[in-house]
């Protein structure tokens, strides 16, 4: 008992130190990787980490949204249109379109909070497809099928990717901390309570539909932020980045990392974006690498990649124990 307490105490101290160390390492990465392509991939990783973590915030409330990439698209297109047609500065369009995305999410979340489980997932899937069709039908306003080009840059005049790198690193950190605080506060507990039993949750006074809408609002705010940031970084938008398959890939990022853990989406996004990059030479065959990663996780790690250290540890102790037994006999 005493020993367990002391390890827990030590972990309380080492945890923040480990996280700070990780952040420092990530912040120093551009020094080692000068290639703009690698920096570009890392920036995309930051953007998708925000999207994946905010996806999970909605999931803990017991809702499985399949419109998350579409909401990223709403944020992206709102920011693009506001800066391109209204001439607003990207520094205004990014927070503004995140707020509007959250508003749209909550507006849609209200009727959708009537739908449960699979029907919610599918209803949101249809909504996401509808959003993409509306963008296609938007003509010159949204660029339709050919996409939108000539969007003002966030940091005009910089050719180097490094300023963008630090901007998105900061954005990802702020988002992760905010979503972490929400999940491990009373709000997060209430969301998890609703997910476990909505009848019991309302019987103790938790406003079920209110909290479900709040979760959607928070999730959409951050994914809108990611989308708007992406717009002013990429400066070119195409609808296909936000369609149903894009949502499905976001879901994969979350599931492969482990949906039951806060770190899951972060780890999953990093693995699924970075590892296939090592196999770029395979060209047409490279999707097989992604499929292989997914397959390994599905068959060997039921709880996702976050459970890997624990699995290794238990395998090791098992081996040690069997050795002991064989020694004894």
């Amino acid at each position: 008992m005493n020993r367990r307490l002391s390890t827990r105490g030590r972990r309380e101290l080492t945890k923040p130190a480990v996280y700070a160390g990780l952040v420092v390492i990530v912040a120093l990465l551009p020094l080692f990787f000068g290639s703009p392509y690698i920096q570009h991939m890392l920036i995309l990783t930051f953007i998708y980490i925000i999207a994946a973590v905010s996806f999970r915030t909605i999931v803990i409330s017991g809702q499985f949204p399949l419109a998350h990439a579409a909401f990223m698209g709403i944020g992206a297109y709102l920011a693009a249109m506001a800066s391109k047609w209204l001439g607003l500065s990207p520094w205004i369009t990014i927070p503004l379109s995140a707020l509007v995305t959250a508003g749209i999410g909550m507006l849609i979340g209200y009727p959708f909070s009537r739908l449960r489980a699979l029907y919610y997932a599918m209803g949101s899937l249809f909504f996401g497809i509808g959003v993409i069709q509306i963008i296609y039908a938007g003509g010159s306003w949204t660029g339709g099928y050919s996409g939108l080009t000539g969007i003002p840059a966030l940091l005009p005049g910089t050719i180097s990717k490094i300023p963008y790198y630090y901007f998105f690193l900061g954005l990802a950190l702020v988002s992760i901390i905010a979503l972490y605080r929400i999940e491990f506060s009373r709000i997060g507990t209430n969301l998890k309570a609703i997910a476990q039993s909505h009848v019991v949750a309302s019987s103790v006074g938790i406003n079920e539909s209110g909290y479900r809408i709040l979760a959607v609002g928070v999730g959409c705010f951050f994914v809108g932020l990611a989308g708007a940031g992406y717009t002013h970084y990429n400066m070119v938008l195409s609808c296909s980045s936000f369609n149903f398959m894009a949502t499905l890939w976001l879901v994969m990022y979350v599931l492969i990392g482990g949906i039951n853990s806060f770190a899951g989406p972060i780890i999953g996004t990093i693995i699924l974006i970075i590892i296939p990059e090592f196999f770029r030479d395979l060209k047409m065959f490279s999707p097989f690498v992604t499929a292989a990663i997914l397959g390994i996780v599905v068959y060997l790690m039921p709880q996702g990649l976050v459970s890997l250290p624990q699995m290794v540890r238990s395998r090791l102790t098992e081996r040690r124990n069997t050795k002991k037994v064989s020694h004894a006999s």
Partner: peptide
């Protein structure tokens, strides 16, 4: 064009919201 797809989706979403468990189904 794309507006017809959008209309079809809108009709389906409204149908689903009217009958949250589908027309002949049960909760899952």
């Amino acid at each position: 064009g794309a507006a017809s797809n959008a209309t079809a989706i809108a009709i389906l979403v409204v149908l689903l919201l009217i009958r949250p468990q589908g027309f002949f189904g049960h909760e899952v």
